[in-house]
């Protein structure tokens, strides 16, 4: 690696490939990535949504094999592919598709700006089951700028967070209004991450993740929407509200477009269903959301009128059972019965 010779900034731990490349770009005498691209967004959000929902893929700038600037970068700065692969390994967890990626932690961005003069994006913000900042223990924000539209996403996210009218105030209010719920959701997130780590050793990592994502998908179904704060539905998938595309599309796809706040609540309700959060703990949060379920039976009773959803959940969860997470943990007679029936 010839980075010393060219004084290439070293990547920070957990920094995304695109964030590091933008930092390299900013220190280069002649920028490698032109800002011309910013002025030509790749289609409107609605169009992207439809493409995304049809299953079309988008090149992910945070993935080595898909970033089209990697080749010139390696050539110009004399960087070896081995070094890059070592510093920017593939995502280790299920991630948000690039067209919907826009989560960030304002505190992390500000700290990195003060430290290195440019905000730095983190890999953990790309993960579906990590809607809260690991470092600060606070909910991530959903930027009004989409990652796919900006090569300098972290810069745009920070500046728009500070400059967009009322955006910062709203986000700060959301954080303070749901403090109890968020702290319990953060505990659940940490618990889940420990579980994933343990499952990695036995090769069950993906199944454990899928089990949790399936639970989160369930908790995002319309039957639970009354328990979500209204703001969780703002800018769902960008500028669009929750679409209501039918049972299967709602179940499988909406989690990708959802806001961080929606994923936090989905994680929180999943943790109640799994018994990670006791009913006593959950009850304390009713002052933040009166309609939120706080007991396991309350969580599952919401699906009593939706047998088709329950059937999908049972089928899915059955596939992803492991010693770490299984149907028995959920304490739902209806779900257990259905999984045996199928």
């Amino acid at each position: 690696m010839k980075s010393k010779k060219f004084s290439i900034p070293q990547p920070f731990p957990d920094e995304t490939l695109s964030s590091w490349m933008w930092r390299v770009n900013s220190t280069a005498t002649i920028p490698l990535i032109s800002h011309e691209r910013f002025s030509s967004p790749e289609g409107e959000i609605l169009e992207r949504d439809e493409q995304g929902l049809r299953g079309e893929g988008f090149a992910d700038r945070d993935v080595l094999s898909e970033n089209r600037f990697i080749e010139p970068l390696m050539r110009i700065f004399g960087i070896s592919p081995e070094w890059l692969s070592k510093r920017f390994p593939a995502f280790s967890q299920l991630s948000i598709p690039i067209q919907f990626r826009r989560a960030f932690c304002s505190e992390c961005l500000m700290e990195s700006f003060q430290h290195v003069g440019i905000p730095v994006s983190k890999v953990q913000w790309c993960y579906l089951a990590k809607p809260m900042c690991e470092l600060h223990g606070v909910p991530l924000h959903d930027s009004t700028r989409l990652f796919i539209e900006h090569d300098d996403y972290s810069v745009q996210a920070l500046v728009s967070y500070l400059d967009d009218p009322k955006f910062k105030e709203t986000q700060d209010h959301v954080r303070s209004a749901g403090r109890l719920t968020h702290s319990l959701a953060f505990k659940a997130q940490q618990h889940f991450q420990r579980l994933v780590k343990r499952a990695r050793k036995s090769g069950d990592e993906l199944k454990v993740q899928m089990f949790m994502i399936t639970l989160m998908r369930t908790m995002m179904m319309p039957a639970y929407h009354h328990a979500y704060p209204n703001v969780a539905f703002h800018n769902w998938g960008g500028t669009n509200p929750y679409m209501g595309l039918g049972i299967h599309a709602d179940f499988f796809l909406e989690i990708y477009r959802s806001t961080c706040l929606a994923r936090i609540h989905a994680l929180y309700f999943s943790a109640i269903a799994l018994g990670w959060i006791s009913s006593k703990q959950a009850f304390t949060t009713t002052r933040e959301c009166y309609f939120a379920p706080w007991r396991v039976d309350q969580v599952w009773s919401r699906l009593d009128s939706y047998p088709s959803v329950l059937r999908i959940v049972a089928l899915e969860l059955k596939n992803y059972q492991t010693q770490y997470l299984n149907l028995a943990d959920l304490d739902s007679p209806a779900l257990n019965r259905m999984s045996y029936d199928e």
Binding site: H35, I118, D163, K168
Partner: peptide, 22 residues
Amino acid sequence: FPFSEFRNHNRVPDSLIAFRKG
């Protein structure tokens, strides 16, 4: 941020004030 583009501001934006605090 010399390689980024932003909209014009008629008053001092909050981002600059935040960077001033930094």
